[in-house]
């Protein structure tokens, strides 16, 4: 084994891991994240140096007015996009430098999305919608059926498996989407305005479901502009003008 003294000192390069931020232990680790859009003359900075960690099992809300950079941040956390600058690890994997297909793989393994507009395949049954991530994970159809059925029953939709989205209520559709998000055992459940298209009664139902999922050990991030929804989380990060304005534990 070489002793550290024999290593030639050299200048620090971009991408070098420093001792203090060698692969982070946190589930999500963002370091000085910038996202810049080239819009005409002026570059538009949607995010300006955002850094934060999310531990496993946390229930986090990200709030902010529209145009604050909240959606951009969500897209980055969800690995739908890569930052212009900065580094982002999820579950120990440096995703900020990945290409499209590697990101797709990370989305499949690590992230379960819940969208405001549900985003279910209209022509597919609830069961097939829930199976979708497993198909791209290359799981055999028998395993898929079983896991999708379990996921659907965990959101109390066992009796609606063969229904298509247009035969389901808004709350039921969102629960199908949640089942889909959970079916591949992701590290993170990422919800974007999950109650934005639901009435208040159904919203409460869905938020109760989130609470239960959190209690079962899931890590949850909810992006919202509704204070009510944010208040259900255990920690709230407020974004304004592309920066973290506030990061507080509320429970």
């Amino acid at each position: 084994m070489e002793s550290p003294a024999t290593i030639e000192p050299r200048a620090l390069e971009h991408g070098d891991l420093l001792a203090h931020d060698a692969v982070p232990a946190a589930l999500i680790s963002m370091r000085d994240i910038w996202k810049t859009y080239e819009m005409g003359e002026e570059p538009l900075h949607a995010l300006r140096g955002v850094s934060f960690d999310v531990q496993r099992g946390e229930y986090l809300a990200i709030i902010g007015p529209s145009g604050s950079g909240k959606s951009t941040l969500m897209n980055l956390i969800g690995c739908l996009d890569t930052p212009s600058q900065g580094r982002y690890w999820i579950n120990g994997k440096l995703v900020s430098e990945m290409d499209d297909d590697e990101l797709a793989h990370i989305r499949n393994k690590e992230i379960g999305f819940v969208f405001q507009t549900f985003n279910l395949l209209a022509r597919a049954t609830a069961l097939h919608n829930v199976e979708l991530p497993l198909i791209y994970a290359g799981i055999s159809s028998a395993d898929r059926h079983e896991r999708a059925k379990n996921a659907l029953s965990s959101v109390e939709l066992s009796d609606r498996m063969m229904h298509r989205p247009n035969e389901l209520s808004g709350g039921q559709r969102q629960r199908v989407a949640i089942a889909r998000a959970l079916v591949n055992h992701p590290s993170l459940l990422l919800a974007d305005e999950p109650t934005g298209a639901l009435d208040s009664h159904t919203s409460i139902e869905i938020m109760n479901l989130f609470e239960r999922l959190h209690a079962e050990g899931n890590t949850i991030i909810v992006v919202t502009h509704e204070p009510d929804i944010a208040s259900r989380a255990h920690r709230v990060i407020a974004i304004r003008d592309g920066q973290i304005e506030k990061d507080e534990k509320i429970r």
Binding site: L182, S187, T219
Partner: peptide, 20 residues
């Protein structure tokens, strides 16, 4: 994985695995 959702216990299967 130690963390993550616990909807069901991970199970061992002896089914034939085809390429994804």
């Amino acid at each position: 994985r130690r963390t993550g959702p616990r909807l069901e216990p991970p199970r061992r299967r002896r089914r034939l695995r085809l390429p994804p």
